[in-house]
Amino acid sequence: MSFYVNILTNPARTVLYTGITNNLERRLHEHSTGLGESGKFTGRYQCNLLVYFEISPDAKQAIAREKQIKNWGRAKKDFLINTMNPAWEPIDLQTWSG
């Protein structure tokens, strides 16, 4: 089973959220349809646009990578996103070729 480390942002691209999941499509659906509670970070800041993701072969590696990214400053996270998605376009998993 693969795990995904992902970075979501809001429409204004001012807030970043880093998370992990074993089902990226399901998790994005939950964020985009408001299934997350409005009091939680992603609901409060409307973080539902996928701008970066990477695949990890197991949960331990994904958790370690998520923690690593969460400890970075904004400039380093921006650089990481720019390596995969320089235009910061929302990634559609059905059409993504990157």
Rank of each mutant, 00 (worst) to 15 (best):
A12S: 14
D92N: 15
H31V: 01
K77G: 01
K40I: 04
P90M: 14
H29R: 14
C47N: 04
Y45W: 15
S2K: 08
L24P: 00
N85A: 01
T14K: 09
R27A: 05
Q61P: 01
S38V: 13
M84T: 04
N82D: 14
N82E: 05
C47D: 01
N71L: 09
R74V: 12
L93V: 13
T14C: 08
N6H: 13
Q68S: 05
G34C: 15
Q46Y: 08
G73N: 09
A12L: 08
N82H: 11
W72A: 07
I20M: 10
K67A: 12
V51C: 01
S2V: 02
K60I: 08
K67V: 15
R26L: 14
P86C: 10
I7R: 14
E66G: 05
P86H: 02
N48M: 06
A75W: 06
F3P: 03
S56C: 11
L80Y: 07
W88I: 13
T9H: 00
K67H: 15
Y4C: 02
V51M: 01
Q68I: 02
M1T: 09
I55Y: 03
S56K: 10
K60W: 14
P11V: 14
G43T: 08
F3C: 00
L35S: 06
N82S: 15
L80Q: 11
H31C: 00
L80N: 08
V5M: 14
A62N: 04
L8S: 01
E37N: 14
A87H: 03
K70G: 06
Y17P: 00
T95E: 15
Y52H: 14
K40C: 06
Q68C: 03
C47F: 05
I7N: 05
T33Q: 13
S56I: 07
Y4M: 05
T95R: 11
R44N: 10
I7T: 08
L93T: 06
K76P: 06
K76C: 04
T18A: 02
T42D: 09
R26P: 01
I91Y: 00
Y17A: 15
L8E: 02
N71I: 09
N6R: 11
M1E: 08
A62G: 10
F79Q: 03
R44A: 14
M1L: 10
N85F: 02
I63K: 02
E25A: 13
K60N: 15
K40H: 13
F79T: 01
A75V: 13
N22V: 03
L93G: 05
Q94M: 15
H31A: 07
I81V: 12
R74G: 00
W88T: 09
I7H: 03
A62M: 11
D92G: 12
M1G: 13
K76V: 07
I91P: 01
N48R: 11
G43Y: 03
K77N: 10
T14Q: 04
D78M: 09
K70F: 07
I7A: 00
K67M: 12
Q61A: 11
T9P: 10
Y45A: 04
L35Q: 10
H31T: 04
G39W: 14
N23Q: 12
L28V: 03
Y4W: 11
H31W: 05
R44M: 12
A87M: 08
T14F: 02
T18C: 09
I91H: 03
T9G: 03
N23R: 03
P86N: 03
M84F: 01
T33P: 06
L16V: 00
V15R: 02
D92Y: 10
G36W: 08
N71P: 08
K77P: 00
W88C: 05
K77L: 13
